[in-house]
Amino acid sequence: MSSDPDLTNFVGLSAVLTGYTTDQLFPPISPEPVAVEYLNTLKANVAATLVNQILTTFQNIAAQQPPNIDQEVQQQILDDPAMGPVARNIIRMWYLSIWYDLNQQQPITGFSAGTVVSMNAYTKGLAWDAAQAHPMGYSEMHYGYWATPPES
């Protein structure tokens, strides 16, 4: 894991928010870790105090090693009127590789305004993994793979 505590907390929080492991979100040896891009995007779009509040809150939750970390994150972060919308935007970012503008009509939909974080991010969107597929336009699989169900 990273020596940057912000990154460590961000990846830890992201794992709870997305349902993926920290190693999946931030592999130990990775040429283009998208977690770094996402943290940078978060910091570029959200006030530093709010980012700190989210990461610190998560750090405190994690330090206590609660039996149900999902429940703690929900109650302390997702249900918080200030932190909740940002946390949900973090989930959207991981799944769809998009940072949606927060100052627009809610709820955010597929047609809301936003920015694709990067080409690298697009190729690593989790929505495609959740579908046991690959990003449209970026497949690493071989001819005919579509004729049989995916490897589990």
Partner: peptide, 20 residues
């Protein structure tokens, strides 16, 4: 490949090359 053990018949057979 940074992930050389990736399945060659799985979704990421390229094993996340470095440099990309």
């Amino acid at each position: 490949p940074t992930q050389p053990s990736a399945s060659l018949t799985g979704p990421n057979p390229t094993g996340s090359p470095a440099p990309p």
